[in-house]
């Protein structure tokens, strides 16, 4: 039997200490494993589990025990933040994740700044926090990862995203003000999660990609505000993982500038080469979610073996999982890492 608890193994990995083998995790949020297969087996279903602490905790526990991922991850969507900030949410169905139905503001110039402490009392924040408290008690050996939508994506969920992207150039002062506001809110939300027992925070920011922003704006906005949020979370004493979507090619030199304790990437990125180029990075990823959905356990297992052999520090899916992914496919991934 391994001497390290999954929680210690992840924390040691993030602290760059030597461990027996990489942890295999799925963070929740954008990368959640609330697949239909798990829900139909356990009867704890979405969308209900988005709304109530008890149900959220039950489903998070089911996901952990059925898939073999060595963590607990909540919530199961990227809309908790936008809902609290005031945008309209479509909560989706069993198989379809929640999304923004309508952004609250048409322009960064029109954003009304609200009081952050009072926002923390609204929306689903107390339910997510309540779920974290329960899960921390029930699974003391597992790392509890609180997932956060990144500042750029959250801002693009508050302001019409087409307008928002243009205003990053046209209305720089207002855009920066909105991102300051959003970042401060995200830090406060993350602190609530840490106070409720989160071991680590994972930030997914799918709008903050090189393909969308380009290198200049990635540096001006994404690096600045991701780091602001990361620093704010570090102040609460927990490590921060950041997932970068897309090819990353256009912004690769900016990645080491992030203050994150681990960088997770999409399947396009060759993590082995990224590690060679920037040995200081703790890498996480990046098993193709298309491969996982295709459901061939043998291929999943082979690809996972390669990631372990390449000394990727944390093994994880490369992006959001399809809800049609099977438990068997995920088991092929988690078992392979554990047997390594």
């Amino acid at each position: 039997m391994s001497s390290l608890s999954p929680k210690q193994r992840l924390l040691d990995t993030l602290a760059k200490k030597r461990v027996d083998r990489p942890p295999v995790i799925c963070t929740g949020g954008m990368m959640n494993a609330a697949i239909v297969d798990v829900m139909t087996r356990s009867g704890h279903t979405l969308p209900e589990a988005h709304f109530e602490a008890g149900r959220m905790a039950e489903l998070a526990g089911d996901i952990h025990s059925e898939t073999g991922f060595e963590n607990i991850g909540i919530p199961f969507c990227m809309t908790v933040e936008a809902e609290v900030l005031g945008s309209e949410i479509d909560f989706g169905t069993l198989a379809c994740e929640p999304k923004i139905a309508r952004e609250l503001f048409p322009s960064v110039k029109e954003v009304v700044f609200r009081n952050i402490p009072s926002m923390l009392q609204s929306g689903r924040i107390s339910e997510v926090a309540g779920a974290a408290e329960r899960l921390g008690r029930l699974h003391p050996d597992q790392p509890l990862i609180g997932s956060l939508t990144g500042p750029i994506s959250t801002a693009a969920s508050l302001v019409d995203p087409m307008q928002f992207l243009k205003e990053l150039r046209k209305e720089r002062e207002s855009a920066h003000r909105v991102l300051e506001y959003v970042s401060n809110f995200l830090i406060a939300f993350a602190h609530t999660l840490v106070d409720s027992g989160a071991t680590a925070i994972c930030i997914g920011d799918p709008t903050a990609t090189g393909e969308i922003l380009g290198p200049r704006m990635f540096d001006e906005y994404a690096v600045t505000y991701l780091n602001k949020v990361i620093d704010g979370i570090h102040a609460a004493g927990v490590p921060v993982l950041v997932h970068i979507c897309g090819e990353m090619k256009a912004v690769k030199p900016s990645i080491p500038l992030l203050h994150a304790d681990a960088i997770s990437t999409d399947a396009f990125v060759n993590l082995k080469l990224l590690k060679q180029e920037y040995p200081q990075l703790t890498t996480m990823g990046n098993l193709s979610t298309i491969l996982l959905e295709s459901g061939n356990p043998e291929k999943v297992s082979r690809r996972t073996e390669t990631l372990v052999r390449d000394r990727i520090d944390i093994i994880s899916p490369a992006c959001g999982l399809s809800t049609a992914t099977t438990i068997a496919a995920i088991r092929a991934m988690t078992d392979t890492v554990k047997e390594a």
């Binding site: 990053l168 150039r169 380009g214």
Partner: peptide, 14 residues
């Protein structure tokens, strides 16, 4: 050519 990205392209289209 990755000189322009989405924000630039959106502004051109405006």
């Amino acid at each position: 050519e990755e000189e322009y990205f989405i924000p630039e392209l959106l502004m051109c289209s405006d």
